[in-house]
Amino acid sequence: MRRPRLLYVPFWMTYVFLYAPIAVLVVMSFNSGDSPYSFDGFSLKWYGELAGNAEIGKGLVNTLLVAAGSTVLATVLGTLLAVGLARYSRSKVLDAIGVLPAVLPDLVLAIGLLVFYGTVKMTLGLHSVLLAHTVFGMAFVAAVVRTRLTHADLSLEEASRDLGANAVTTFLRITLPQLAPGIAAGALLAFTLSVDEFVIAFFTAAPTEPTLPIVIYSMVRFGVTPEINALATLLLAVSFTVVIVAQRMTRLTESLS
């Protein structure tokens, strides 16, 4: 098909716009000088500084704890909810409640939970962030698993029941394995979203137990330091790897099915 040549201008501008700031961060993270603005020579010293930063280390551990916990909880609840909504309910209202956390602005959910924790006088800490992240994680897991459910073969479950397997065995041996790729994708999504999540964590975390995004936020607010460039580069490397691996995996499962 004809591709109007003029369109290449905004097309390339988009990619330059998206990647130029990222490229600058990566280059500056290898700066040997102290200025975050001028490149003096290659060095890994900011990565060394980063490794010795206790605040960032603590934030990272907290983030991983919250993400791991909320992913487990969100995956179990989300998978059950997806099966329940698809097989045991025809209610549009329940469907809407199931997707609500995914479409609600993060600030609204954050405020709601802050008010809720305050009203029931719950002390804030990592557990309050974990519970909060489970709310939206669950919605994303349920959404992914549900699309998988629509492709699942119902006759296999019927065959299992007819051959004498009870409901629990049928669910564990037939339904669950069919849903496994969807559950894995949903869990990966919930984990990634939790690791990156800032707004809800900011309102529901205790000041003494910040997650990594909260640590980054306070560093950025305080001013520009080359250490953040090194941290940013590492985070970019991790996210890029995860996205590309996930992309490969989905292509693999697509070609298998």
């Binding site: 990619y15 700031p21 600058v24 980054i216 950025v220 941290l231 995860v242």
Partner: peptide, 28 residues
């Protein structure tokens, strides 16, 4: 398409911070 989505999957604060490095007074 992957190249469009990729930045979105990187930390939001880091992407905002990149603009401070670019645009601030003594910035690039």
């Amino acid at each position: 398409l992957v190249a469009i989505v990729l930045p979105f999957w990187t930390n939001f604060l880091v992407r905002v911070y990149a603009w401070i490095v670019l645009l601030s007074g003594p910035g690039l």
